[in-house]
Design a binder for these strands. Sequence first.
DNA 1: GGCTAACCGAGACGGTACGTCTTGTCTTACC
DNA 2: GGTAAGACAAGACGTACCGTCTCGGTTAGCC
Lengths: 185, 185, 185, 185
Amino acid sequence: MPDAGRRDPEAHRAILDAAWALTTAGGWTAVSVDAIAARAGVGKRTVYRWWPGKAAVVLEAFLDHARATPVTTRATTVEGLLRAHARHFVDLYVNTELGRVFTGLFGAAQQDPDLAARLDEHWFEPRRAPVRAAARELVRDDADVDLLLDLVFAPLHYRLLTGRRPLDHAYADAVLTAALTGVLG
Amino acid sequence: MPDAGRRDPEAHRAILDAAWALTTAGGWTAVSVDAIAARAGVGKRTVYRWWPGKAAVVLEAFLDHARATPVTTRATTVEGLLRAHARHFVDLYVNTELGRVFTGLFGAAQQDPDLAARLDEHWFEPRRAPVRAAARELVRDDADVDLLLDLVFAPLHYRLLTGRRPLDHAYADAVLTAALTGVLG
Amino acid sequence: MPDAGRRDPEAHRAILDAAWALTTAGGWTAVSVDAIAARAGVGKRTVYRWWPGKAAVVLEAFLDHARATPVTTRATTVEGLLRAHARHFVDLYVNTELGRVFTGLFGAAQQDPDLAARLDEHWFEPRRAPVRAAARELVRDDADVDLLLDLVFAPLHYRLLTGRRPLDHAYADAVLTAALTGVLG
Amino acid sequence: MPDAGRRDPEAHRAILDAAWALTTAGGWTAVSVDAIAARAGVGKRTVYRWWPGKAAVVLEAFLDHARATPVTTRATTVEGLLRAHARHFVDLYVNTELGRVFTGLFGAAQQDPDLAARLDEHWFEPRRAPVRAAARELVRDDADVDLLLDLVFAPLHYRLLTGRRPLDHAYADAVLTAALTGVLG
DNA sequence: GGCTAACCGAGACGGTACGTCTTGTCTTACC
DNA sequence: GGTAAGACAAGACGTACCGTCTCGGTTAGCC
C-alpha cells in the first residue's frame, strides 16, 4: 500500500503552534486559517487537508496544552475528590491562557455542532469520566452522580463564561459544599 | 431645542423584525447587517447609526420577545418560587425560538465584552434580581442567595449551551431539590 | 422680523468660503456637500436649495476668485492682445490655487453636462468673447478668429490638464507665434 | 520555481469585457468595481488584486479596443502625415464608443495622478511618438516638432472634452493648415 | 530507475460580510 | 417662508476571511 505523501509532522506541529500563539496573543478573533498558515509557513491547503477549519485546529492546540496539566488526585471521600477536581479546574482556567482559549472555543461551538461534539468528546467527557467513576464508589448507590457533577461544574463554567464575579478556590469550595449538603442545609 | 432628525420608529421596528426573522429562520450565521438592512428596506448606515453591529440588534430583538413572556409567580416558599422560575426558564428556552437565539447571543458574547455586558445587564440581571429579592425574605439570613441562584440556574444554562441531554421540568426539579437540600441529603 | 423667506447672504457666503477652503486645502476629492455644510455651519438642505450639487458650489467659488483677477489690456495688435491674454491665463492657472480647482471642475464636467454648460457659459465664453471681439478688428476679415483662439488656448489648457511639461510664458509665446505664422513659417 | 497561483486569463478577460460593456452602456458613472465584478462573475478581490481601482480597469479595456484600430499611414509630407493622424483621431473618438470612454478616463485622471501617468504612458505618448519620429524627418531641423503636435492635437482634444461644436474632418483639416502655415498666413 | 500517488508551499479564485462614505431627499422645530 | 440639524435609502468603497482550486516541486513505496 502506498504510504507515500503522508502527514508531515513538522507542518502539523507548526500549525498547532501558530494557532496557539495567535489565539493566546490576540484572542479568538485574531485567528484565521490565513493567519495560521502564514505564521506556520504552510499553505492554506495543508491546514484544510487535516482540519475542517480554524476551530478544529485551535481545539487540538487547546487539548495539547490542557493535557499537559493532568488532574492527579487520590481522594478517599467524595468531597475530597470533587474539591481536587474543582480547584484544578479553577487553576486551569484562571491562571493560564487556557481559560481565554476555552471561552473562544465554547463560543464558537454555539454555531458549530461538530465543534460542540468534539469539545464534549475530547474535553468535557474525559474530565467528567474519572470523577464520575471515582465518585460512584464513594456515594450511596441511589445518588445521582451526574447531577452532582452538573451542580459542581456548571456554576464554575457559568462564572467563567459570563465573566460574573471572581472564579477562585473560595467559590469552588462554596459551590462544592452547597452541592453536597444543600444551600439550606 | 431642536428635536429634529430623530429616530424613525418605523425603521427601528423594521430592523428589529428583520433581525428576528433572519435569526429564527436561519440561525445566528444567517444574520448579517447587510441582510438585516436589505430585508428591512433600510440603508446599512441606519443600522450602524443606532447599533454597533448585528449582535446588538439581535439582542434587542431577543429582549423584545423575551419580555413578552414575563414570569408571573406568587410563591410563598423558596422552593415554590425557584421552581416557578426554573420551569419558566425551561419553557422559554425549550419551547420557543428564544433558546436558539439565546445560544447565538451567548456564543457571540464570548468575543464581545460589550455584548456580554449588555446581556448581563438586560437579560441575566433583570431575571435574577426579583428572584433574589423574593428569596431573601424566604430563607435564613445567613444563606447565600446568590450562590443558591447559581446552583439552580447555572446547570440549566449549561445543559442548554452544551446540548447535553434533555432540558426539561424533571431536570429543573431535580436541580432545584439538590441545590436546596444537597445531593447527599 | 418679516425678513423671512429670502436667501440668507451670510449662509451663501459661508458656503462659498467653505467650498473654496476645502477645495484648495484638500483638492476636489476633499469636497463633499456634507463637508461644505459642516464647515459652513449650515444645513445640507440649504446647500441643495440653492445649488444642484458640490460642483456648482465649487464653480461659483471658483468664478468668484477668478473674477477677482481680470484681464486688463489695451493692445493695438492681434499678437499683443493674444499675448496678454495667454500670459494672464498662464499666471492665473500656474501661480494661484485656481489651476488646481479648475482641473477639478473640468474633470467633473466630463460626467456632468450641466456643469460643462455652466463652465462654458461662465468661464470659457466670457474669457473668449472680449478677445474674439477685439481680435476681429485687428485681423483680416476672412480670418477665422475662433480657430485662432482654439490654436492658442487649447494647447495651454491641454498642458495644464495633462500635466505635460511646464506651462509658462515661454510656452505661451511659442504657441502664440506658431498659431499666427505657422510652425513651418 | 513555483509558478503557481498566477493570473487567470479567463477572469482577466471577463473583467475587461464587463468594464467595457458597463462603460459603453451607461457611461463612466455606471461603472463600479462592484458592478464589474458582478457582471464578470468574479470576486471583487480579484479585481483589486490586479488593478488599483475601476479607472485602471477601464483604461486597460479602453487601450485594448483602441489598439484594435491602429494608424496605418505612409505619408511623404508632414502635412499628409499629420492629416492622416488627425483624421484617424477624429474617427476614433467620434464614430466609436471610444470617445465617450476616453472623456470619462480623462476626467477621472484630473483627480488621479496615477491614472494620468498611465494614460500618458499608454495612450498619448504611443500615439505621439511615431508621428513625432516621422515628422522629424520631414521638416526643417530647427522646427519644434512637439510644438507642432500640440498645435494640432490639443485643439482636437479640447473640442472633444469641452463639447464645443463639431469635431470632424473639416475642423481637423483647418487646424492642421493653420498649425503649419499660421492663421494669418 | 522509473512510476505513481499523495504530500508540500504558494497563492489565485468566487463569494460574503464588514464598517465607512457620499449622495440627494426628507422631517422637525425655530425664527 | 428659510434655516440648522441631521435621519433616511441607496449603494460604492476597499479589506478580511472563507473554503476550493491549480500549480510545480518533493518525497515516499512499488514495479
